[in-house]
Simulated assay, not measured.
Amino acid sequence: MSGRDPDRRRTLLDAADRVIRREGPEASMAAIAAEAGITKPILYRHFGDKSGLYQALANRHVRTVVDLLRQQFEQTGTDLRGRARSTITAYLDMIAANLSLYRFLFHRAGAEDSRTHSQMTAIVRSLGEELGEVIAAASEGLGPVRAQVLGHAFVGMVQATGDWWLEHPEVDRTEVVESLVGVIVAAMSSATASLR
């Protein structure tokens, strides 16, 4: 079946990327099909349906983001402030550089398709869980529940602030990063101080 051909799928996803970057998050399936030189029904046949295309795009891009953020936060030999700063900077740089794709995946596709929304939510949740585990391991005596609460709070805060910042390009990225880092460091300091 042609829908199983990984090279063909890659070519079609490349076409989708080009259209979304060029036309923004409102890019149509018809425009994506035209870019690929096929009809819309053939495009859907390769991915099962529109949801399958959305999920293939999400898998392609979100895993890249997750891997980058994981590398940044797991840097050894760097204090919490430095790791938070490099992770948040990398995240904001990535969403700003891929604005149309970010808005397509996190806003349009998630709003139109419940499976894609569930997938994106699960990825954000897994980032919170991972960060909670890192916090628990790095903070002696901080219980696993408290570490998980902080991990999810930090991920949600950075994502929501990133969305706000994209709507306010006049705000300097460094100010946003340092404000977020300050909140994270203060929350961690408060959490560990309360254990003493």
Rank of each mutant, 00 (worst) to 15 (best):
D7P: 00
R146L: 14
A27K: 00
R8N: 07
T192I: 15
I32M: 14
E170N: 11
L57W: 02
A138T: 13
L53Y: 02
G37S: 08
L12N: 02
L166P: 05
E35Q: 15
P169R: 13
D49I: 06
H61S: 04
E133I: 07
A160K: 11
V19F: 00
L68W: 01
D67Q: 10
V158H: 01
E112L: 11
R4Y: 09
F104M: 08
A136Y: 05
S179N: 11
D7Q: 13
T116V: 10
A96D: 12
G162K: 05
L92Q: 05
I88G: 00
R21Q: 11
G141P: 07
S179P: 00
A186V: 06
R146P: 01
T87P: 02
E133C: 08
E178G: 03
P41G: 07
G141D: 10
H61L: 07
D17W: 01
E167I: 03
V155R: 00
A96G: 14
A90M: 09
L150A: 06
I184C: 05
R8T: 12
V181P: 03
A16C: 06
G162Q: 07
A193T: 14
L68E: 12
H46K: 02
R10A: 15
A186H: 13
T121G: 06
E35Y: 00
T76D: 11
T76W: 03
R18C: 04
R8G: 05
R108P: 03
G3E: 09
T76E: 13
S179R: 09
L105K: 01
L57S: 02
A34K: 13
E26F: 04
A30I: 06
A33C: 05
G110A: 15
R108C: 03
R45A: 14
T174I: 06
A84Y: 01
H107L: 13
I123Q: 07
A33F: 00
Y102L: 02
V134R: 08
Q75S: 13
L99P: 01
I95D: 02
V158Q: 01
L195I: 15
N59F: 07
D5S: 08
P6H: 06
S194N: 12
W164G: 08
S190P: 00
A56M: 08
A147Q: 06
Q119S: 08
S2H: 09
I135Q: 02
V145C: 05
V171P: 03
A137N: 10
R4F: 07
G77R: 04
V149T: 13
S194K: 12
A147D: 06
A153L: 12
I184W: 00
A34T: 11
A138R: 15
A191E: 03
D14M: 03
V183T: 08
I95P: 05
R63L: 10
V158R: 01
T64R: 14
M120G: 00
E133K: 10
R21D: 15
T76Y: 03
D14A: 12
L105M: 14
R18S: 12
G132T: 09
F154C: 02
T64A: 12
N59W: 09
